[in-house]
Design a protein around this nucleic acid. Structure first.
Lengths: 220, 220
DNA sequence: TCGCGCGTTTTGTGATCACAATCCCCCCAT
DNA sequence: ATGGGGGGATTGTGATCACAAAACGCGCGA
C-alpha cells in the first residue's frame, strides 16, 4: 500500500485525516446500534474495510475504547461492550442527570423555528417506529435530543452525554425490542409541549422521564 | 531502538503496555497542574523522555486529546488547553452536577473508617496549603474527593468526573493562586460533618459549594 | 532598523515490518 | 464420543521509515 496524495478519496471539503474518518464512521455505527454487544473487530479488518493501514485503525479503536465505546481485553482483543445491568443503570442515571440540565439550558433559547425542527424530526422518528427500523429509530431519536441540546451552548456537557449514548449504543437496539412503542412518542410530545410553554420544571421532568423510561426496561 | 523483551523496566506486577505507562504519566501531570496552559508537547520529545518510539507517544497523546486533556491544532500541534471563561464555567457546572450525586451515592456506604481516611487526607491537604505547594495541594485535594466518590460504586460516573478534572488540570494551578486559602478547608470540614451525620442534603450542598467556590473565582 | 522571503529544520501522519502472544481448529488418544 | 494437546494462523504492539506541511530562522532589501 502506497502513500497516496492527500486528495485521493476525499469528496467535499476537508474531511479530516484518515484516522478521523475511520473514527467517525465506527463511532456512528456503535452509537446507533449497528454493532452487536460482544461483536469482535480487528485492526487489519478495519484497515482493509476503510482502505488504510493498521495505524489509523488502531488510533480510532484506542480512542473509542478510551471513550467506553469498545472494550479491549487484557490481550488487546477488541469487542463491542456487553454491559452489565449495574452499568446500564449507572449510564441511565447519568443521562437522567445531564439531559434535563441540557434541556433546561436550551429552553430560553428555544425559538419557534427550533420547535418546528424538532417536530419534523419527531415525525421521522414515527416513521421508523412504524417501519420497525431499530437503527433508524435510534438515529433519529438521538438526533431529536441532540438538536435540542445543541441550543444549550454547552459543548463539554453535550460531549459527555454523547459519550454516554456511545457506551449504550450496542445495547440500545436490544432494548428497543422490549420497548412499548406507543408511549415512545408520548414523551417526545411532552417535551415539545413543555418547550412551547416555556415551562422549565415540566421540561426537566419530561426529558428525565423520556430518558429513564426506555432504559429501565432492560433491568426489569 | 530495539524491541526489548516485555519485562525490561517493569518493577512490580504487570504495569501495562508502553503506551499506557506514557498515558498514565502524562495524565497525572496534566490533572495535577504540572503542565501550564498553552505549553507545547512533541511526539518525539515524549518518546525520548519515556524511552519509547513515536507510536506509543502518539497513542497516549491522541487519547488525552480525545478526553480534552490536550488540544491538537488543525495541523496536529499539541498543547495543553487554555480554557475560555465559558468553558471553565461549563466544566464547573458539570462538577456541581456530578459530584454531589456521587457523594450522595457514597453516603450510605461511608463507614467510620472511610471518614477517618478522609480526615487523614485532609490533614495532608492542609500541609500542602501551608507549604504553598500548588501541585501537592491539587493532588491531595482530588484524592480527597476521589476517595469519597470511590465508595459510590459508580465507575462510569467517576470516570466522567475525572475527565472534567483532567480538562481543568492545567488551569487549576493558576486558579489556586487566587483562592482564599482559609476557607479552603472549611468546605472539606463541612463535607466530613455531613458525612458523619448521615445528612444527605447537607452533604450535597457542602460538596457543591466546595466545588463551585474555587472555580467561580476565575471568572470573577 | 524593520519587514519579508526562502531554505532548513522540526513535526505529525501513515505505511510497513518484526515479533510475541493468543486463539483456533484439527487430530489423536482414551 | 469427548477432552486435551499441538501447530499454524491471526492479532495487537512497537519501531522505523518516507513524506508533506508547518514552523523557524537567517539574511537580504527597503
Amino acid at each position: 500500500m502506497v502513500t497516496l496524495p492527500r486528495t485521493a478519496g476525499e469528496i467535499g471539503s476537508a474531511t479530516g485525516s484518515a484516522h478521523e474518518q475511520v473514527y467517525r464512521s465506527l463511532r456512528s455505527r456503535i452509537m446507533h446500534g449497528e454493532i452487536d454487544p460482544g461483536e469482535a473487530l480487528t485492526l487489519r479488518g478495519i484497515g482493509k474495510e476503510f482502505g488504510v493501514s493498521m495505524t489509523p485503525a488502531r488510533e480510532s479503536v484506542r480512542r473509542l475504547a478510551a471513550e467506553g465505546a469498545l472494550t479491549m481485553s487484557s490481550s488487546g482483543r477488541i469487542t463491542a461492550p456487553d454491559l452489565s445491568a449495574d452499568r446500564i443503570e449507572e449510564l441511565a442515571a447519568l443521562r437522567a442527570l445531564l439531559e434535563p440540565e441540557l434541556a433546561a439550558r436550551a429552553l430560553p433559547r428555544a425559538h419557534l423555528a427550533l420547535i418546528d425542527r424538532l417536530r419534523a424530526i419527531n415525525a421521522r422518528v414515527s416513521e421508523f417506529v412504524a417501519k420497525q427500523d431499530a437503527v433508524g429509530y435510534l438515529r433519529t431519536n438521538l438526533e431529536f435530543h441532540r438538536t435540542l441540546y445543541l441550543r444549550a451552548q454547552a459543548p463539554a456537557m453535550l460531549a459527555m452525554v454523547e459519550t454516554v449514548w456511545l457506551q449504550l449504543g450496542p445495547t440500545m437496539r436490544a432494548l428497543y425490542a422490549r420497548r412499548n412503542r406507543t408511549d415512545l412518542q408520548k414523551h417526545h410530545r411532552m417535551i415539545l409541549a413543555a418547550l412551547a410553554a416555556g415551562d422549565e420544571p415540566a421540561l426537566r421532568l419530561a426529558v428525565r422521564t423520556d430518558v429513564t423510561q426506555g432504559l429501565k426496561m432492560l433491568v426489569a
